[in-house]
Every structure is written in C-alpha cells, then in structure tokens.
Design a protein around this nucleic acid. Sequence first.
DNA 1: CGACTTTGACCTGCGC
DNA 2: GCGCAGGTCAAAGTCG
Length: 340
Amino acid sequence: MSVEAMDREFFFHDHHFLRDRSGSGDDDFSLHDERDLSSLFVAQKQGGDSLPGFDLHAAPSFMMSFDDYLHGSRCILDDSDAFATGDQLAVDGGTIKSSNNLTPSTGGGGASPTSLNCSVSSSSIEAAGDEDGRRCKRDKLKREEEEEEELIKELDEKQEQAKAGEEANSDKTKKVSKITRKKGEKRQREARFAFVTKSEVDHLEDGYRWRKYGQKAVKNSPFPRSYYRCTTQKCLVKKMVERSHQDPATVITTYEGKHTHQIPTAGRGSTRLPIAPPPAAAGFHFHSLLMQEANTTTSSSMNILPSFQSPLQGVLHHQLPDGGLLQDIAPCFFVPKSQP
DNA sequence: CGACTTTGACCTGCGC
DNA sequence: GCGCAGGTCAAAGTCG
C-alpha cells in the first residue's frame, strides 16, 4: 500500500481521546473523574452513535496534530471521498462539531456499526459557571505553591546546616527529600491524555519500553489499574492502563508526560524493526506517523493499518489486534505541536 | 544476572 | 481529624 493510499485509508477508529483538565495548571489534566469516561461510553453505546454532533460513520482518513485537537481548534480532514474538503471538526462545549454534516456521502448513515468515536474532554468543555471556582482554586494553589517554596527554602537551609555539622537527623532528611519530591511532582506534573482502545490485551505495544511499578484496584471496577514508567533513563513518561468496567473489551490508557528520547529499537520479545524517531519538535502529525509506519514496518508488524479499509468499502474492525501497536497513535501525542 | 513483575506498605490529596 | 481512594515505593519473586 502506498503512503498516499494509507494516508487516505487510515481510520482512527475506536480510539476515544479524553482530556480532562482537572488541575489548575494549563497542562494538568487527568482522568480521575470516571464520570467523564462513563459519559463517553454511554455516548458511544446509545444507539450506536457517537457523541452528539459528532457523527463520523465510516470516517475518512484525516490528518491533525494532537495539539490542534487538544486545543479544540480543529481537526483537518483530508480531501477524502467521504468528506468535502474543508470540513472541520471543532471542539465546542463538550461535543465535537463539524462545519458540515459529518455523515459521509456513502456508508449508509447513522446505523452503521462502523462509527468512529472520537471524544474530547478539555478545560474548554467545562461550564462557564465553573470559571469562578476554578479561579479560586488556581489562586489557592498559587498561594500553596508560594508557601511551599518558602517552606522548602527553610528546609533547605536547615538541611545545609545539618550537613555542615554532619549531624543531620535522618528523619528530617527524609522529610525534606519527600517534600522536595512532592514539590517536583506538583510542578512537573506533565500533561496527561488518555485514549480508549478495544483490545484483549491490557498493555498495548506502543514502541516504547515500560516498566510496571504498581497496580491498584480501582473503585467500582473489577479490573485493576496498572502503572507503568518509561524505562529509558531520565524519561519521566508514565502511563496507566485499566480496563473499562463498563466495557471489559475496552482498555483505557492514560499517558503522562513527553518522551525525551527516540522510540527505542525492538524491545524484549519484540520482533519489530527499529522505528524512525519522531521529530524532536512539534508539529507531529498522524500523517508523519503513517509515513513512518509505511517505511519501517514489515507486513507482520502492520498491526493497525491493515485492519482498516476504505470508508467506501464500509468495512472496519472494532478491535485492535492483540498486541497491537499504538506507536502510530500515541507518540504523536507526546509531542504537542506547540508547547509554551 | 539484569530486567521486569508482583504486591503490600506507605504517602498524599480530598471530601465529609 | 478521619477515612477513602489514587498514586508511588521498594523488597521479593520471576523470567529469559
């Protein structure tokens, strides 16, 4: 399949992008609130339709930067047969709207089982009435940060003194290090994003190497949540993987942070070929990823693209093949188009 | 033997 | 202050 053909025939199917800016910081968003997920699943299940105003049955291929997506500006669709050029998706008030009716000219309308659900939850989605509350929270957090800084200064001074006298109380030192870490955590809390994938395997291969560092039972869910950290030195990217209790076939993967390195070569037990590194800077599009995929994968490792066919053919698979590679989805999110 | 997983304990934040 | 839930740590176990 040519790159151009792939470009046109790639479907971003059954991946729901979730963003919930629960924190005060602009880059702090998470998926703590399960209600967001629930609403998404409900939205998906009801009548087989996706979110209100977002009807992407037999969706076309599209190119978009995740940054565009996250900032709710637009998803740029290509000039596929199913959509008129210039159709745009815009995130608005919790729904994704199009400047046009996104029902494709072919594909049989809303009853198609091949709906593509693409959901965004972002700060812009919060009701306007929450603005005051958020402002208060921001102020509060700012104050806390300032207080924390002062405390840390004090503690640092104390620690220095203790060091000088070589009589540092070990407990105190522990406390300092923890507070310092806490500070770091709070400050360096990286942007999070999550996406939902239908797969039988929990831990989907995405090209990076991960080490599991924890597992927790999740309230109201029979499935535990697993915590993974990127094994590359100095890379602080983490991810959480959990299975939806509402749809056990669905895996929710939440990424936090940006990889500071290239995608490693094939990991343990993997037969993948080395993958071309993503651009270090911004502007990383699906398009590019697809190009990479086309250039670097063998037929045996084409784990996503072959599953999708042209919208005009109306055949789509709802499931990612087991062990499906997410690298052509996930890495692009780590590199937002424009980072302040 | 190194890399990785498992798992209980611990820490932190938040709501009541 | 207390309890709960999410998140992390770290020792022990497992695997290749």
